[in-house]
C-alpha cells in the first residue's frame, strides 16, 4: 500500500521548509540588502540627482543630465580606452592561462595541487602592495628593466606607460583566468578525445571539436572574471601608468573627489554596472549552467 500524506500536512511541511530556508538565509539576505541593494539604490538615485553649486548632491530636481553627459566626447574617449585595455588584458590572460591550465590538469595529483597552491599564493598578500612592488621592479634601475636591457631586448623602461598598465593587469588577474579554466579542462572526459583520434581526427581537429567546446564554460567564466575588474581598474593605472591616460576607474574617482560631481560619478558607475551585467548575462547564456 502506498502511503499518501494528506495534502494539508504536505502543504504545511513545504511551508515550514520554506520558512526554515528563509531564516537560514536571513543573515545573507540582510547582508546583501544593507551592503549591496541599499548602496546600489543610492548610486542610482544620485545619478538622477542635481549637483549644487558647492558640490553637494541634492536629491531633488530629478533629471537625466548625468546620462546625457555620457554621450560627450570626453566620456566616450575614456570609456572606449578602458574597454580596449580590458579586452587586451582578457585576451593576453586567456592566451597565457589556457596552456597553463592544460598543463596543470594533466599532472599527477600531488604536483597538480602544488601548482594550484602556487597560483593562489599571490592572494596571500595585498594587491596594492604587489602593485607597488611592480613599480620597484619596473623603475629605471629595477630588476625588470635591467634584465630586459641585459638580454638586448631594447629599452626596458616601461614604467608609466600603457604596456606597464597591461602588465600589471595581466599579472593581477591571471589567477582568475587559470582557476575556472582548470576547473573545466580537468572535467573533460579524455576518452572522447581518444575516440576522435581513433576516427582519424587530427590533433588540431580533436582540440577544436572536443576540447575547446568542453572547456568553453571555463573560458567564458575566466574572461568575465578578468574583463570586469580590468574595465574599472583604478589602482594599476594609477600606480604603474602614472595616471597619464584617463580610464574609467580614475575618471569616476575624479568626479567624486575633484569635480565633486556626484550625479556624473554615479551615472558612470551605472554604466560600468551595465557593462558588467551584460557580461554576466552572456555568461549565463553561454553555458554558465554547465559549470
Amino acid at each position: 500500500m502506498k502511503k499518501v500524506s494528506p495534502p494539508g500536512l504536505e502543504k504545511q511541511a513545504i511551508k515550514a521548509k520554506a520558512r526554515q530556508g528563509f531564516f537560514i538565509g536571513l543573515p545573507s539576505i540582510a547582508y546583501l540588502l544593507i551592503f549591496f541593494i541599499i548602496p546600489l539604490g543610492y548610486v542610482i538615485a544620485y545619478s538622477f540627482a542635481t549637483r549644487s553649486r558647492s558640490g553637494r548632491t541634492e536629491l531633488r530636481d530629478w533629471n537625466v543630465d548625468a546620462y546625457i553627459r555620457l554621450g560627450e566626447d570626453v566620456v566616450q574617449a575614456v570609456a572606449w580606452r578602458s574597454l580596449w585595455i580590458a579586452v587586451l588584458t582578457t585576451v593576453i590572460c586567456l592566451l597565457l592561462a589556457y596552456p597553463l591550465a592544460f598543463f596543470i590538469s594533466t599532472r599527477r595529483p600531488v604536483i597538480r595541487n602544488l601548482l594550484l597552491v602556487g597560483i593562489m599564493i599571490p592572494f596571500w598578500s595585498n594587491f596594492l602592495i604587489r602593485t607597488y612592488a611592480w613599480r620597484v621592479l619596473l623603475s629605471s634601475d629595477g630588476l625588470f628593466t635591467k634584465v630586459v636591457e641585459g638580454l638586448g631586448l631594447g629599452d626596458g623602461r616601461i614604467l608609466f606607460t600603457r604596456p606597464a598598465v597591461i602588465l600589471g593587469l595581466v599579472y593581477g588577474y591571471l589567477p582568475f583566468m587559470v582557476l575556472p579554466l582548470y576547473a573545466s579542462i580537468d572535467r573533460i572526459n579524455w576518452s572522447l578525445v581518444e575516440g576522435a583520434r581513433d576516427l582519424y581526427a587530427s590533433g588540431w581537429k580533436a582540440f577544436r571539436r572536443i576540447v575547446w567546446p568542453l572547456s568553453r564554460p571555463g573560458v567564458v567564466a575566466g574572461s568575465i572574471l578578468v574583463f570586469v575588474p580590468s574595465f574599472g581598474a583604478y589602482v594599476t593605472p594609477a600606480i604603474l601608468g602614472g595616471n597619464k591616460e584617463s580610464l574609467m576607474g580614475s575618471y569616476i574617482v575624479d568626479q567624486f573627489m575633484d569635480a565633486r560631481n556626484g550625479p556624473l560619478g554615479s551615472s558612470l558607475s551605472v554604466l560600468v554596472l551595465g557593462v558588467m551585467l551584460i557580461g554576466t548575462m552572456i555568461y549565463f547564456r553561454q553555458g554558465g549552467r554547465n559549470l
Binding site: R51, R53, S54, G55, V74, A77, V78, R81, N243, K244, E245, S246, Y251, D254, Q255, D258, A259, R260, N261, L264
Partner: peptide, 18 residues
C-alpha cells in the same frame, strides 16, 4: 571655489592627458 566651473577644470585635465 568656482562652483559649477569646477566641472570644467576636471574635464579640461581629463581631455588634456589623453
Amino acid at each position: 571655489d568656482t562652483g559649477d566651473f569646477e566641472i570644467n577644470f576636471t574635464d579640461a585635465l581629463t581631455r588634456a592627458r589623453s
